[in-house]
Amino acid sequence: MPELPDLQVFAKNLTKLFKDKKLEKVNATVTAKLNVPVKELEDTLEGQTLTHIGRVGKELQFTFKNGHVLALHLMLHGELHLFEAKNEHRFSIIELIFEDKKGLVLTDFQKAATPTLDPEKSDTPDALAVDARYIEQKLSSTKSPVKTVLMDQKVLRGIGNAYVDEILYDAKLSPFSASNKIPAEKVKVLLHSIKSVLEDAEKQIIKHNPDLISGEVRDFLLVHKPKQKETAKGETIHQKPVGSRKTYYTDSQELF
């Protein structure tokens, strides 16, 4: 599943392609998860100019001149593809066709990727906007493993399994640490790691895949590497589950 850095890059590249273009046609081919009738979607968006594409949590949000927003959640296997005039991609969920006949399609063979018209706004902070006070409050209120807390989209939006492992490795904090046992000074280190790891990942993706609009780029990760036995520093990479998620970590990460 694409996480925050991937989606940041997708949004920037899609902006270059489609910002200020008029949407001629929207085709919702899989409607089971669509939150409004197809006709309402068409009446709301067709003929409107796209003014902004951004990332909110794990969604891409397309904002149009009339103020309405189309959100796309790629889920686990959703992919975005470009096409001209006619979409030839299989497993289409929704197609957006713009005035120059250039189109964007969301596909998913599992049919889990979700389009939403005018999604509800969330009070949960984004991982790049969170502050120390909020993180301290959330961690101190539970004894759950810190990895579980950081992956909870109702606590912190935008990051998932891979980048939580990377953040905890950077902070030298064990993913199994009881959240309410982590000292305040270590929480500050964790907050710094959240932002620095995510921002650096975005730079790495742009450097090696400047036109990316789909998929996951993980080559540069340091510890969340299923096929690798050691880090670049020679540390043994261990793998154990936290909840149902495979977790990669080293002995250098302190357990509280």
Rank of each mutant, 00 (worst) to 15 (best):
Pro2Tyr: 06
Pro2Ile: 11
Glu3Cys: 03
Gln8Arg: 01
Phe10Met: 00
Asn13Cys: 02
Leu14Asn: 07
Leu17Met: 04
Lys22Phe: 14
Ala28Arg: 02
Thr31Met: 02
Thr31Val: 04
Lys33Thr: 11
Leu34Arg: 03
Asn35Ala: 03
Val36Leu: 06
Val36Glu: 12
Leu41Lys: 05
Thr44Glu: 10
Thr44Ser: 15
Leu45Pro: 12
Leu45Arg: 10
Leu45Asn: 05
Glu46Ser: 03
Glu46Met: 01
Gln48Ile: 07
Thr49Ala: 01
His52Trp: 02
Ile53His: 08
Ile53Lys: 12
Gly54Cys: 05
Leu60Ile: 04
Phe62Met: 14
His68Glu: 13
His68Met: 06
Leu72Arg: 07
Leu72Ala: 10
Gly78Val: 08
Leu80Gln: 06
Phe83His: 14
Phe83Asp: 14
Phe83Met: 14
Glu84Asp: 13
Ala85Val: 13
Ala85Glu: 11
Asn87Glu: 12
Glu88Ser: 15
Phe91Leu: 04
Ser92Ile: 07
Ser92Gly: 10
Ser92Lys: 09
Ile97Ala: 07
Asp100Arg: 13
Asp100Lys: 13
Lys101Gly: 04
Lys101Thr: 09
Gly103Leu: 02
Gly103Arg: 00
Val105Phe: 12
Leu106Ala: 11
Thr107Ala: 06
Asp108Val: 04
Lys111Phe: 13
Ala112His: 08
Thr114Met: 12
Thr114Arg: 13
Pro115Met: 14
Thr116Arg: 14
Asp118Ser: 06
Glu120Asn: 11
Lys121Gly: 01
Asp123His: 05
Thr124Gly: 11
Thr124Ala: 07
Ala127Tyr: 08
Leu128Asn: 09
Val130Gln: 00
Asp131Arg: 02
Asp131Pro: 01
Ala132Asn: 13
Arg133Gly: 00
Arg133Lys: 14
Ile135Tyr: 05
Ile135Arg: 00
Gln137Asp: 15
Lys138Gly: 04
Ser140Met: 10
Ser141Gly: 10
Ser144Phe: 04
Ser144Cys: 03
Lys147Gly: 09
Val149Asn: 00
Met151Lys: 01
Lys154Asn: 14
Val155Arg: 04
Val155Cys: 05
Arg157Trp: 10
Gly158Thr: 07
Gly158Ser: 11
Gly160Gln: 15
Ala162Ile: 12
Ala162Asn: 13
Tyr163His: 03
Asp165Pro: 05
Ile167Asp: 06
Leu168Arg: 07
Tyr169Glu: 02
Asp170Lys: 03
Asp170Phe: 01
Asp170Trp: 00
Ala171Cys: 09
Leu173Trp: 00
Ala178Gly: 13
Asn180Phe: 09
Ile182Pro: 01
Lys188Ser: 04
Leu191Pro: 10
Ile194Ala: 03
Lys195His: 11
Lys195Tyr: 03
Lys195Gln: 06
Ser196Asn: 07
Ser196His: 05
Leu198Arg: 00
Glu199Cys: 00
Asp200Tyr: 12
Ala201Cys: 09
Ala201Asp: 05
Lys203Asp: 05
Ile205Asn: 08
Pro210Glu: 05
Ile213Lys: 02
Gly215Leu: 02
Glu230Asn: 08
Glu230Pro: 09
Ala232Glu: 11
Ala232Phe: 02
Lys233His: 00
Gly234Ser: 00
Glu235Asn: 09
Thr236Trp: 02
Ile237Cys: 07
Ile237Gly: 03
His238Pro: 12
His238Arg: 07
His238Leu: 11
Gln239Ile: 13
Lys240Pro: 12
Pro241Asn: 15
Val242Thr: 08
Lys246Cys: 04
Thr247Ile: 08
Thr250Ile: 12
Thr250Cys: 07
Thr250Lys: 01
Asp251Asn: 11
Ser252Phe: 01
Gln253His: 04
